[in-house]
Amino acid sequence: MMKRNVNIKSMKYEDFNDNEYIEQMLKELRDNGTNVVVGCLDDVIEWGRSNSLWPLTFATSCCGIEFMAIGAARHDFARFGFEVARSSPRQADFIMVAGTITHKMAPVLKRLYDQMADPKYVIATGGCAISGGPFKKSYHVVDGVDKIIPVDVYIPGCPPRPEAMLYGLMQLQRKVKAQRFLGGLNKGISEKEYERLMREDTNKAEDYSEYDESGLA
């Protein structure tokens, strides 16, 4: 079955900047082919998931205010179904790293990411999260969150305008649509590898058992 092109309502395909990336993903899917039933089911699931991405309320600095602004009256990301911002990482679908990540914050961010339930996505918002931005040379700033956690979408700006953030969110929707939920292709690593890593992670985490008791949410 051919995986169809991804479309976003009332946006032209050409209006998006980096179509090659999506096309690459689609090509990979098409080359592998899939069974009709699984493919249809996949399409429905991807449609559902891409239209119901719930953010984690997470903001460290300036970009966080713009993140609030896209939730507010003028820009209103509720239109896309993103408005159910969850405070608990367990219930969120993507984390919008809005603001600078410092050395002290880095382990916390990693932990938040680990606490999220699969499938999960990361958006790096603003110069600081992408590369360290104006604080790149500082002794206490992580130059780019992609050093810590895998990033799906980058939204440049300092801080990005709300329109840019919406564009970034639409890009994330496109990426979700071009993925395959059943079968695990496009995941970067194979299913087995993933399992192994998860198991390793669990075993390692056992050592921190006292940490769990501390109630750090």
Partner: peptide, 14 residues
């Protein structure tokens, strides 16, 4: 605190 300590004062010196 310090989770968003960006070392601005040190950066300014250079």
């Amino acid at each position: 605190s310090g989770y968003i300590h960006r070392g601005i004062e040190k950066l300014c010196e250079s």
